[in-house]
Computed example of a mutant assay.
Amino acid sequence: MFAPPAPAANDPLVPAYVRAAGGVRLHFGRAGGRTHRLDVAESGGYRARFPTTYDATCEAVLINTGGGMAGGDAMRVEVMLEPGSDAVVTSQAAEKIYRSQGADTRIETSLSVAGGASLAWLPQESILFSGARLARSLDVELAADSRLVVSEAVFFGRSAMGEVMARGALRDRWRIRREGRLVFAEDLRLDGAISEALARPAIAFGALAAATLLAAGPALQDDLDRARALGAEEAASPVEIGAGIVGDLLVVRLLSPDAQALRRVLVTLLGHLTGRALPRTWST
């Protein structure tokens, strides 16, 4: 069973000083034909582990030892790539965002990709429980010739267990700059009766899972063609795919009333965009 949503109390049951706060800072650079971690900083209950890779790429897996986040918790992730480096950053598991008494759960991500470098930011989905309040931001700095693939997915409740996100809030802010110039800005806000809002045709038409993918690189038209071809192949599935090029960025949206179906299509699409198999944590 799960706790039904309720109005926030005037006085929080858990004081602010016991809320979890921390994060990870990663700095990658290229040496000897391979990408290496140059600096790693961890705080709070957040850790980074580096599985063995057999190519020039360095892979990092982010771990939340607390097993999830609640209202008032905060996490910050900073990733920096030196020129010519190649890194994949993912998470050990889906991030669970639990019910809040009123305070937001805050997740801040900052990515910096230098010239000739390539970053795949591939965290697994965030699962919002009923009553959750998530405020999330993504800030990206790109060089003129850097490459990037970003994936962010949200599941509104655990549909396999019959849960829905009756009430709560989601605020998602994206800012992407290339050579200091703003090339992509987006703000999403859902607040209040989430399940009712998602049922509206103009918002999600009953979808319970959503994902946004963004790619920056030299072959955007080819990537767009692959995304649209996959959309045609999945025409009979419950996953809706929309893709287009905005400026010099490929933007792909996924919506589905079936979270597992969306995840399956997301894995296929990310394989096309990154040109590699996803990290092992995506299949464990």
Rank of each mutant, 00 (worst) to 15 (best):
S112T: 14
E108F: 12
S100Y: 14
G102N: 10
E82Y: 01
K96A: 12
I97A: 13
E82K: 14
L111C: 15
T109W: 03
V88H: 04
D104M: 10
R99T: 03
V113L: 03
A93G: 12
T105L: 13
E95K: 00
I107A: 12
R106S: 10
R99I: 14
S85W: 00
S112G: 11
S112H: 13
T90P: 12
S85L: 02
T105D: 10
S85C: 08
S91H: 06
Y98Q: 02
I97Y: 04
L111E: 10
Q101P: 15
T105I: 04
T90E: 08
L122Y: 02
A93C: 14
A93K: 11
G116C: 07
R99M: 04
W121I: 12
G102Y: 06
S112N: 06
G84M: 03
E95L: 08
I107D: 05
A93L: 09
A103E: 12
R99A: 14
L111A: 09
V89C: 05
Y98A: 05
A87Y: 00
G115M: 10
S118G: 13
K96I: 15
Y98W: 07
I107Q: 15
A103P: 11
L122R: 04
R106P: 01
E82Q: 15
K96C: 11
K96Y: 08
S91N: 09
L119N: 06
R106C: 12
Q92M: 02
A117S: 14
T109R: 15
E108A: 15
Q92E: 14
S85K: 01
A103V: 09
S110W: 06
L122I: 07
T90G: 09
W121D: 05
K96M: 12
A103T: 09
A120H: 13
A117Y: 00
R106K: 13
E95G: 13
S112E: 15
S112P: 05
S110F: 08
T105G: 05
Q92I: 10
T109Y: 01
A87Q: 09
S91K: 07
T90C: 14
R99L: 13
T105S: 13
L119E: 07
T109V: 15
L122V: 13
R106A: 12
L119R: 05
A87E: 03
T90S: 15
S110P: 00
A94W: 00
T90D: 09
D104A: 15
L122Q: 04
S112Y: 02
V88F: 12
G115K: 10
V113W: 01
S118W: 03
G84I: 05
L111W: 06
G116D: 04
V113D: 02
R106G: 04
D86C: 09
W121Y: 03
Q101I: 11
Y98V: 00
S110Q: 11
S85M: 00
L122F: 04
G116W: 03
A117D: 01
S118E: 10
